[in-house]
Simulated assay, not measured.
Amino acid sequence: MAKDTRTRLLEASAQLFREQGYSGTGLKQITAAGGAPWGSLYHFFPGGKEHLGAEAVAHSGARYLKLFDRVFAQADAEVVRSVRDFFHLSVDALERSGWGDGCPIATVALEVASTSEPLRHACAEVFAAWEASIARRLASAGIAEDRAAELAVYVLAAFEGAIVLSRTAHDTRPLRVTADVVAATLTAELPAQR
């Protein structure tokens, strides 16, 4: 099924923001990458680039959450394996993309958190949704809810930080090492491991 123009614009924006940042991406570049006429951008996003950016962040966040759900399902609901697998997907993505395919949310957040309240808010909502999902998974594995919420912050912060370090160094070692440390930490927190 062909994607509608609005979806193509959102996906083109997300890809370009991930690769070259929010400020480094122009609206004409987005419409060209999305195969959309110029006028359609303001039709779907009357608030311009900031409006498009906030919706692209939300769109990307929802897609990554679905990816995490698929990874979790493939790991037969084993939370530690799922988290480790998600880290390793990012290892593969960074290597395949020549270090350009980082987290689309972090890329935008680092750039605009103090300059655009709508974009900061969109990024914060995505991160909160990811944290909540991780916390639910950890709690369902038997970790107390309060502790699961704390560990979810840790997992997400470790993941995002490892991506930044790996992209900067052009080396996946930070992601690989962090995956192992996070997995060991979560394993130690599971009730069956005590």
Rank of each mutant, 00 (worst) to 15 (best):
M1N: 03
A2K: 10
T7F: 06
L10Q: 06
S13F: 12
L16P: 02
L16E: 02
R18Q: 15
R18L: 00
A32I: 05
G34A: 03
A36Q: 01
W38Y: 14
S40H: 03
Y42P: 01
Y42T: 12
H43M: 02
G47A: 07
K49D: 08
L52W: 01
A54S: 11
A56F: 03
A56W: 04
A58T: 07
G61W: 09
D69R: 11
V71W: 10
Q74T: 09
Q74H: 07
Q74A: 14
Q74I: 04
A75P: 01
E78T: 08
V79F: 01
V79E: 11
D85V: 14
H88D: 11
V91W: 12
L94S: 14
I105V: 14
L110W: 14
V112L: 03
V112A: 03
A113N: 06
R120D: 03
H121D: 07
A122W: 02
E125N: 10
F127P: 00
F127W: 08
A129S: 11
A129H: 10
E131Q: 14
L138G: 13
A139L: 08
G142Q: 09
G142W: 14
E145D: 13
R147P: 11
A152S: 14
V153R: 12
Y154M: 15
L156P: 03
L156C: 02
G161P: 06
G161Y: 03
I163V: 11
I163Y: 02
S166G: 01
S166D: 01
D171I: 15
P174H: 08
L175F: 12
R176W: 00
D180W: 04
V181T: 15
E189G: 03
A192C: 05
